[in-house]
Design a protein around this nucleic acid. Structure first.
Lengths: 140, 140
DNA sequence: CTCCAAGAGTTGACGCGTCAACTCTGTATG
DNA sequence: CATACAGAGTTGACGCGTCAACTCTTGGAG
């Protein structure tokens, strides 16, 4: 069990993080009409790829990727492509529209990340967060 | 625009945070059958309260609270109560079941937070994260 | 008293994310 | 050849969260 100070610390951390993400989500939606998840796909899909490959690169569940691709395909940002002679649609690629959006979003979102997150970190804070993050990812 | 090292930093941070939250969500779901959002409501609703009061305390949008309360009411964790002579149901309170769940969840989730988050932080990391969080919340 | 504007709360639509169940295809094995 | 099985991908159901639109009440201003 946690004592009051520990809950307070935890709560503050989670609130701050949530606030940051909300702000970034809104910015991306406003500036480019896409979500953070879609942004990640646009960044990662730099070449035609199998769905599983994309899922691995993002470290997301396959079904999450499948659902998101469906939504993005409907909006013309990505296209599923035929892979080999079977005609089965197992690959995916950006459309021209997707590429344009990716370019716009990189600028806009990058600026927002800088303004809302990076610029607000002291060197110490950045170092601590970096080391913590790497540690968490390394431990699985 | 961000350079490669900055994107890398950002990506690592977000992945680590997401991983942590996923783990905690699963733990809470497994141990107590509730989500983190429901846990927050159970912790905050220590007395009968108006919906708006609850929303303010949590710093959530009203509609988020209303939706969640509907789901929780369906499952018997909270009950909407009549407020004043009008008979309009504007208040909300925990049920006995809600109180029991809150108690169980405090223990289980507390242990998970300690194990997955607090125990993994060095003193420096904790201090940096605390100062960053407070700063973010203070700036709105 | 009447009307109307502000506040509280709810609802509906929709996108996101998870889990479990399903389909499809290629391949190993009898 | 038949079958059965593993891997890739999709789908459906459901909870979460946001936004916008809606209802209901209350408290003035005329």
């Amino acid at each position: 069990m946690l004592d009051a100070a520990e809950w307070e610390f935890w709560d503050t951390w989670m609130r701050a993080h949530r606030l940051l993400l909300r702000e970034l989500d809104r910015g991306l939606q406003r500036d480019c009409g896409i979500s953070k998840a879609e942004f990640s796909v646009l960044m990662t899909l730099t070449r035609p790829m199998r769905v599983g490959e994309l899922a691995d690169a993002l470290d997301w569940e396959k079904s999450r990727v499948a659902h998101l691709l469906t939504r993005m395909e409907r909006r013309g940002l990505v296209a599923r492509i035929e892979d080999g002679a079977t005609g089965r649609r197992t690959g995916v690629d950006l459309t021209g529209e997707g590429r344009r959006t990716a370019e716009r979003a990189t600028k806009a979102h990058g600026a927002n990340v800088r303004r809302l997150a990076l610029d607000r970190l002291t060197a110490d804070q950045a170092a601590a967060i970096r080391s913590w993050s790497e540690q968490v990812l390394a431990e699985g």
